[in-house]
Design a protein around this nucleic acid. Structure first.
Lengths: 168, 168
DNA sequence: TATTGTTATACTCTATAACTATA
DNA sequence: TATAGTTATAGAGTATAACAATA
């Protein structure tokens, strides 16, 4: 997303001649501002955009970061297990892993028990990058959210979103 | 989304032999369950999925519904204005509009003032379909969310997401 | 026969450049 | 020259089918 798709905020969209008096009417969101799915998607895009920006020094996408986090918390799992947990289809997980492995952040090792499966592990560099990424996420990304919503607000938001994700 | 990418919920992932005692360890989400962006995305997918299901009789996607809502609330606007407001790029808005217009839900009319621009309007059928869609959204989709979160919870969630979408 | 990782493929979203017709 | 709508195109993300190796 370069800059073009960013939605117009409430007081924009005027033509040159109308800037001073803000003459031209802004487009009304109307009932859209009460549609949870719409606002949810908008908020999600904003949060991902900020995540990307905060972790830019390490060149990690949200998806890549989530894989590293999961490998750290679950050493010795295979591709299917990790992909399923993240809701990523196995075929699509292959290239994601390829990119991480080519950067020496994780490795695939054929399992001794079941030689069909690949055991996934973080490399030393993977651990180091993950540690640095976590620091950036906490100190920059989540810190900004805390600032905007307050610690209580953030907790409440997380609880409601988790409820939707798990029970809806 | 057929069914494959659905994430494994907490107590799954065991091998056949282990089902009874739930022996095989579930993959641990770990810090992922505290990452707002992750939960936000998961919740958004769930909500869109439910929206699609609830409005299935009318064959409207969330994006198409948002366009119809906006045209209803802002008659006489052109493509650029509507697309910008929704955060849709003008080139991508063309085929979206084509599909709505081919179903006789809206029309493009060349503006008399500025013959470059297309004024957008809902057709009679467009108004009717939008009215029916609104009923389905309120009575099925948003009703389910209200049931899950409670009216106060829903309001609080909407307020926080709006804040993120506008100020983050 | 079933499963793991993989390839190939297709469809949707999103993004940019460039054309045309108007201004 | 600048803007509105459009075309073409390219890249992500996501989906399914099918194959080789292994169980």
């Amino acid at each position: 997303m370069a800059d073009s798709a960013k939605p117009v905020s409430r007081r924009e969209g005027r033509k040159e001649a109308a800037v001073a008096a803000d003459e031209t009417q802004a487009v009304q969101l109307g009932e859209l501002s009460d549609l949870l799915g719409y606002v949810l998607k908008r908020a999600q895009l904003k949060v991902f955009e900020d995540f990307l920006h905060c972790v830019a020094p390490l060149q990690l996408t949200p998806a890549q970061f989530s894989v590293l986090l999961l490998l750290d918390a679950n050493p010795g799992r295979n591709q299917t297990e990790i992909a399923n947990t993240l809701g990523i289809l196995r075929p699509n997980f292959v290239s994601l892993l390829d990119s991480l492995e080519s950067r020496d952040l994780c490795t695939r090792v054929r399992s001794a028990n079941d030689r069909r499966s690949h055991i996934l592990m973080l490399t030393e560099k993977g651990h180091a990058v993950l540690a640095r990424a976590k620091k950036l996420v906490v100190s920059k990304h989540e810190a900004r959210l805390n600032e905007l919503l307050g610690p209580d607000g953030r907790e409440a938001l997380l609880a409601m979103l988790t409820k939707i994700a798990e029970e809806f």
